[in-house]
Design a protein around this nucleic acid. Structure first.
Lengths: 242, 242
DNA sequence: ACCTATTTTTGACATAAGTCAAGGCAGTGC
DNA sequence: GCACTGCCTTGACTTATGTCAAAAATAGGT
């Protein structure tokens, strides 16, 4: 096969993938082919290696991103360098949309966890687009609302539950999301999970060990089996682990 | 004066107040008189005594509210009855808009802290309105984005800072917001402030006492004078209070 | 001004979770 | 096979913050 043919195939594949992602993302749900085309036209492809910074807190915001492939973490860093992960986004998720509308700078940092392909949507073009497409703006409102709802849950967890409860609630949530019965696979490292739960690796490790001992779960590396879902759900509510 | 005249005056005053509130709220910023009128037409007045429930978590959402007068707290309750306040909203603030777009139930409870006058905006009419008014939807997007940004800060505070840091950061924020130099007035009780900061009244009381001793602030009931703004800002960053 | 109810403060105590330090385990490359 | 690196676990210790109980202060209503 010629190199040129390979390249051509590759490009076609990528193009198809992008269109798939765009049309599946909740953000662009129910838009017409024409509208999708308009969005594709204003989007700019960006490729990042693993561990690269996409933007930093207080950077000026010229637009937002959509993950086509790979994984991106959104996090904040405390003065002492302690890092707290706010979100981890995968294919189809937009991120950094907030400052596009609040007209401010980025409120957190974004870094790739894997080699990633992102679409960058420049702000001015997108604002134009949205002012002309009511259905797009309704989608956007729905996405932001969902995020707000998730944040509400996260704040609730952080402020009125202890770490075991947060972990239990996260495990049950993951099992539902992955729809693999009682088997859960962590797509992130335990250290990152600790940060996402607002704690540190040591504490997480101890709690996983405790839950093991109490036959709530069975941990094998990144594979976790939920042995007692009711017990976990109670824990997520009440909070006390023995 | 006749009773009828009094009543008439009262009604006119209220009408003017409502229009003021509506036009000042960020949600409706820059809308035309005609558009404001349309909103007023679909809005329903609701009056509540102090301490009344506006909606409860998991209630069906038929629309959202705007505070005309009074004060409303949004809070969640843990299984043991521990309450955590997420927001406190005053005149001009909308609340409960999230489920209007995410199409779900209310994610938290709302209760009046004072005798309050609210506008209720029914969902179907508002969705119609927004699909026809791009500028309204852009405003709405901006408001939701702002909220998301505030939540980001709140999560950051809760997860990577200790209570003294959260308090310091809140005091500085309040001083900026109230624009009264170094004097801050708490519009809520200290117990409610504790809940908003994700802690309990006892802890808050102790920390206020400590900050007093270190000449960072001077507390007199609900009046607080910031004596050392730089010190407070450092505290908000670093976290350690002596 | 008085009484009551609420809010705030204080103290003694219990505990969850962070820090520091060391060791184990797994994967990778030489 | 071996060392290296990153990730995870474990232990001893410290500390911040919550719990319980009671006193003090404040605000509201009559």
């Amino acid at each position: 096969m010629s190199k040129i043919g390979d390249n051509f195939n590759k490009k076609r594949k990528i193009m198809k993938k992008i269109l798939d992602i765009i049309s599946q993302a909740p953000l662009f749900n129910g838009l017409s082919q024409e509208q999708l085309g308009q969005i594709r036209q204003i989007a700019i492809d960006k490729f990042y290696d693993k561990g690269k910074t996409v933007f930093m807190e207080s950077d000026d915001c010229n637009g937002f991103y959509i993950v086509v492939a790979g994984k991106v973490k959104i996090y904040k860093v405390s003065f002492e360098g302690k890092e707290h992960i706010l979100h981890i986004y995968g294919p189809g998720n937009p991120f950094g949309e907030v400052p596009v509308f609040s007209g401010r700078k980025f409120p957190a940092n974004a870094e790739t966890l894997l080699r990633s392909h992102l679409l960058f949507i420049p702000r001015p073009a997108f604002v134009d687009l949205i002012s002309e497409n009511p259905s797009l703006s309704l989608n956007m409102l729905a996405v932001l609302s969902m995020r707000l709802r998730q944040f509400t849950v996260q704040i609730e967890n952080l402020s009125l539950k202890e770490v075991p409860a947060r972990l239990a609630s996260y495990l049950v949530y993951l099992a539902d999301e992955q729809a693999t019965g009682d088997f859960v696979f962590l797509t992130i490292s335990k250290g990152q999970l600790a940060s996402l739960l607002g704690t540190i690796p040591e504490t997480l490790s101890r709690i996983l060990a405790k839950m093991n001992k109490q036959n709530l779960i069975q941990v094998e590396g990144r594979n976790i089996k939920l042995l007692n879902r009711n017990g976990l759900e109670e824990l997520a509510q009440h909070g006390k682990l023995q």
